[in-house]
């Protein structure tokens, strides 16, 4: 397959990592499986600089304006937003459930924090997801090593700071192994 190397343009501000945007939409009546998940998820852009990021982002629908079962993902280039990916298989994610109306703002803040390297956990971050559902929306951030409690605690603390979460927000950590076992994430 053709592989196009994405690099920052002249005079642009490079990012520490390249990131790829993905979009998926699921028909809720169908059972979730990794096979149809992979069929339904599409990547639509990789960015290497701050300026490239804004060019893609400014053309996107705000996640809070999406309907039904839709997810936006922003992952480091080369990491598929799937539990089975080499970078994710020993990992996990912090899950934040949001009442309707908050997803767009929190999604923007979490991706800016990730791209700006605000988490200070080395190579640990894999990507972030915003999941639009009927009753609530869900934000999650994936990291490589679920067993690394220092890292997961640091990610949680950074999230609280950069998102300025409402005090009653519940944050839950789930390993991808557990997600695979119960075959349900959200």
């Amino acid at each position: 397959s053709k592989y196009k190397v994405v690099v920052p343009g002249t005079g642009e501000h490079p990012l520490q990592y390249n990131y790829t945007f993905w979009y998926s939409r699921r028909i809720p009546s169908r059972p979730a499986s990794s096979q149809n998940y992979e069929q339904n998820i599409k990547q639509f852009g990789t960015v290497a600089s701050v300026e490239q990021f804004w060019r893609v982002y400014s053309h996107l629908v705000r996640p809070g304006d999406l309907s039904g079962y839709s997810d936006f993902h922003l992952f480091k280039e080369g990491i598929k937003p799937m539990w089975e990916d080499e970078a994710n298989k020993n990992g996990g994610k912090w899950i934040i459930r949001l009442r309707k109306g908050l997803a767009s703002r929190f999604w923007e803040n979490i991706i800016l924090a990730m791209m700006g390297e605000q988490f200070m956990v080395g190579e640990e971050i894999c990507g972030v997801v915003v999941s639009i559902r009927f009753q609530e929306d869900i934000l999650s951030i994936w990291n490589k090593t679920a067993s690394d409690q220092v890292t997961t605690a640091r990610i949680r603390d950074t999230l609280r700071r950069v998102l300025n979460l409402p005090p009653n927000t519940i944050m839950e950590y789930k390993t991808h192994t557990d997600s695979l076992k119960d075959n349900s994430s959200f």
């Binding site: 803040n109 791209m115 700006g116 390297e117």
Partner: peptide, 21 residues
Amino acid sequence: GTRIIYDRKFLMECRNSPVAK
């Protein structure tokens, strides 16, 4: 190694500048 760190304020300013500085 050195990491490229940007705060939210800087990233938002880049959004509003039509030409990269």
